[in-house]
Structures are given as C-alpha cells and as structure tokens.
Amino acid sequence: MSAAEPPILQAKGLTKRFAGLVSVDHVDFSLARNEILGLIGPNGAGKTTLVNMISGTLRPSEGELAFKGERIDTLPSYRRAHLGIARTFQVMKPFPGLSTLDNVAVGAMFGTGGGEKSRAKAREKAREWLEFTGLGNRLEASADSLGGPDRKRLEFAKALAMEPELLLLDEVMAGLTAVEVDQVVELIKKIRDQGVTILVIEHVIKAIRSLSDRVLVLHHGEAIAEGDPATVLENPQVVEAYLGKRRA
C-alpha cells in the first residue's frame, strides 16, 4: 500500500438538512483501506442519514464525498454500488417474496462492476455467500419466513455478494443475544480479513470496542469525537452525550 493512495472514503463538510432541520452538520472523516470505523451516537444523531448519503439513498445538502479519490456525491445509488459500495439496512429490506438464494443472487448479479452477468453463476456465488454467513441450510426458504437473526445474516449475505470494497453496516446487532452478537463480530472480522473496508453503526458498545480500529461519535449531527475506541469511549463529552443518556 503506497502512502499516496487516496482514502477509500473521504467526507468533507457533509451536511443534510430536512426542511430546515439539520440532521448531519458539516461532518469530516475518512476511511483508510481495510479499516473498521465504528460510528456511534445517541438515537437521532444522524448516523443512518450519514450512511444514506454514502450509499446514495439521500443526496447531501452540502459537502463533498469521494470514493477512492473520485467524487461520488451526485451519483445515483446503483452507480455507487457498481463502484463497490454496499450497505445493510437498519430496517431490513429483504425481497420478501423471493427465496434467500434469489435474494442474494441479486447482489451477485448487480454488485461491484455491474455484477455477474450470468444468472446461473450468480446463483452459485450466492450459495457460497449464504454458506459463509451461516444460512447454507436455508437456501430455498422465502425471505419473509426467516427469523430475526437469520434476516440479519441474509442482509449480510446480500451485501457481501456484491463483493464490495466498502461495506456500510447499519445496526446489524440490534436485538441479538450476547452469543449472537459474538457470532456477528466474528463474521465482521472474517469479512475484513477478505480485504473489505467497513463502517459499522452500532449501539452495542462491547462490539464496537472489540471491532473498531477507530470510532467516530455523532451528536446532534455533529462529529464530537474521533480516535481509537479506548480513548474516545472514555472522553467525558462522549460519556455525557451518549453513554450518560443511555444510563438515564
């Protein structure tokens, strides 16, 4: 890796306003290749809005967004997917009427670089990703028949089948048991080991601590702290804004 390589993702002054309300306020950050960045903050801090701007679901009101040095902030979602950005949704969006295999095959067929053009090969790849995420025994189950944890695995498999360089994970651990959280943490580490850069939004602090190389804290749309997890999570401002509130 040369020192001159631009960051995978760079945001400068990223801002989103909804009818006068500022949801994300001039946020700057960058993601280096193969890094895991934890994005935390209380509910309504603007985390999902930030992810929506990166994936293209929302257009920024202001600011710049660059992926591997190229401006992407005006590209439609599908073009960003072709460049190598994948995401999961906090409110999970499986294709309800399709089998898990067909769900994941969509990722393989349309992901990075436009995806695999042959439907048969795409299904083969989808099968592998379902094995990887532990859904190998539910290939033909219809997506809306899956339980909570399996749905999360399906979201993972769909995003991974796109073979992204940057993966945005929006609260994939919410509602899981401690054991299931550990499994997902292991899964995320396994994904990173394949060379993927990851942005994780999470409320489960234990997971953030063990996963993240760096943590970025959002509060009322502003970035209030950034750094390695241990330091940031002890930062009094963060404790007050985020942890304090949760304790109350």
């Binding site: 679901t57 309800p96 067929m109 990075t112």
Partner: peptide
C-alpha cells in the same frame, strides 16, 4: 438477469437501487 432486476424492483425498489 434483466428479469431478476425487475423482480428486485417489485420487491423493494430502494434495496434494489442500493444493490446496483
């Protein structure tokens, strides 16, 4: 593949767009 794209749109258009 074209048809798979159409079906993805039918099932969830936002998810289809973010998947490419």
């Amino acid at each position: 593949r074209f048809g798979a794209g159409l079906v993805a749109i039918r099932e969830d258009e936002d998810a289809a767009a973010t998947m490419g």
